[in-house]
Amino acid sequence: MKIKPGKLRNRFWPSIALVALALVLASCASVPYMPGEAKVQKTVALINSGGVPGIKGLSDAPFIFDAEILLLQAEVASLWDNLKATGFGIGKAKIVSISRIGDESYRLFSPTAEVRAFFKKYLNRDSVLVTLDTSEGRYLVILNREVKGYPRIQGFKGPTK
């Protein structure tokens, strides 16, 4: 039986479209995460409202707090609970930069072998470093792919003058 070219195109079009869609999705997944300013401000607002512990998986261990590596989930939960209890907030933050984690980024947290190891082992290509300036000083926040619409928080340091 002879198939006309037009019919062939009609028959295979859905498969071709599916393959193309799969390729697009695959390429999206392989693009490293980079939050926009709106997402960063949304995260700051969440921190200021004390809402971080309320979103499961948003801030989990391992976590870096200043130069301390927190390996237990209970420690990270306790950190956010304490901050909430004291009424801590980053305040009105100006975004200085949103950048990928580089080989030397760990020095911004602490120039120690431990912090270098943390950055090497526990952060990945989706981890980004956000620098925020506030009236209290500078904050560094490490964010990663989103959980329920918010970038995951992998650590923070600050405020430093």
Partner: peptide, 18 residues
């Protein structure tokens, strides 16, 4: 250092940020 001192630091720093 990790599970005792680190926890102590976290407790103090997070309670005295302000």
């Amino acid at each position: 250092r990790r599970f005792v001192l680190g926890d102590m630091y976290m407790q103090m720093r997070s309670r005295h940020m302000l």
